[in-house]
Write a protein that binds this DNA or RNA. Structure first.
Lengths: 237, 237
DNA sequence: ACCTGAACACCGTTCAAGT
DNA sequence: ACCTGAACACCGTTCAAGT
């Protein structure tokens, strides 16, 4: 079996593996570093949103040319991959020791969600990307330990951890462009539901008010449902 | 309260509402129609992927200029919004009548997921967009009916329906760029997990093989967990 | 050895000009 | 009244040329 000639896509397992075998790029005395590029990118993302994360803007932030960035990063996609993994690390912190496994999982899920809602730019980059960077893997290892410790088989524990992460990330992205703190949006929603054809979608018309401002309810209901379901899996194992 | 002067973003409740109050664009005898544009876009999406869905390519497919498209669609974003809602309709079909509410929900979720996996382009457009178009609302109404019929309060039923949709969409997008039928990817994953530092992520190293090919397990575990959790919510109501 | 300026091939969007 | 050609202001990426 010989080495594949095609470049692996950033973010894939093959890419992270290939990355390690490359000779480390020599440290420059010059100021431009990968760390610096990621710092600037993250700041840009928080201040001006995901659409503003362009190579030109990053370069401008760092007072260099776009071409210089390609000395530290092969692609924009590679930059995004590294950025996402770094941003994830901020969200992973140890939950309170005295909680049980479900309490710890809920605590981490809520914290991760809050982090993403405070940094919507990061959240929107997170959609659809694989998460195999070192920080992502650390989080995965933690969740796996939690569920195995609770009594799930490794296989089911892995699926459970994955499901939970999928749900948290999905719940953030669902409301992304929508500023839920903006009362206008919920007003428009109510108006939309109310004005539908009652013979086609009767329940939306009837429960328009309830549906209009679900807010965090969706997340909490889904979260407890998942954890309750995991608990049931343990008892039936 | 006067009309807002800012244009609502495509996909928001305000946008769908405003759309209805506009005078319908007169039917042309010319061949170019909104329907035709959406047909061509969907074909493009399936054949060449989400990245190929550009105004230029759509125009080329229809033998017209890019500018002509803007006669039927205000934005690319608007085109995407309409496209997503239309694509959703294909996935919504009536589940078998003899199943209970959980069986019906599971059937629909699996069907929706399969549809999205067969059309990854649609799935990637789906991330992060609001889903308030007529077909999306029909699906929402159906799910709401299912959960209310099962005994949940309208509020909890709405949150449950939302959670389920979030999970299904999230589960597809997680594996997007990754061709899971490609054995190489799972091999690389196993290799990645195995070669991690066992003092940092011991569980990933230990269970590398299990983690490498989770496949559809993640979805099934999450799905049954959610439904089990919903059932528990009913009994405690 | 490193960085730059300038270009290339793309985007979405607009609008005067044609028919 | 409708459609077009051509432009505008952006993208990501590359590379010969400078220092």
């Amino acid at each position: 079996m010989h080495e594949p000639t095609t470049e692996p896509r950033p973010g894939t397992a093959a890419w992270w593996l290939a990355r390690e075998n490359e000779p480390e790029r020599p440290r420059r005395r010059r100021s431009l570093t990968l760390e610096g590029i990621l710092d600037a990118s993250l700041a840009l993302l928080d201040e001006r949103g995901a659409a503003a994360l362009t190579m030109r803007n990053v370069a401008e932030e760092l007072d260099c040319t776009q071409a210089s960035l390609y000395r530290h990063v092969r692609n924009r996609e590679e930059l995004v991959t590294l950025l996402v993994d770094r941003a994830i690390s901020v969200a992973s912190a140890a939950p309170p020791e005295d909680a049980d496994w479900a309490g710890k999982a809920a605590w981490s899920a809520r914290r991760f969600r809050e982090h993403l809602r405070r940094h919507p730019g990061v959240a929107s980059l997170l959609r659809g990307t694989e998460r195999l960077g070192p920080n992502s893997l650390a989080g995965m290892n933690y969740a796996l330990g939690l569920f195995i410790g609770a009594g799930l088989s490794p296989r089911v524990a892995a699926a459970a951890a994955s499901s939970l992460a999928t749900f948290v990330i999905g719940s953030v992205n669902f409301n992304l462009g929508v500023d839920t703190r903006d009362p206008e949006e919920s007003r428009h929603r109510r108006q939309l539901f109310r004005s539908r054809d009652a013979s086609v979608v009767p329940l939306l018309v009837e429960h328009a008010d309830t549906l209009a401002d679900l807010g965090d309810d969706e997340f909490e209901v889904g979260l407890t449902a998942l954890l309750t379901g995991f608990r049931a899996l343990i008892e039936n194992d």
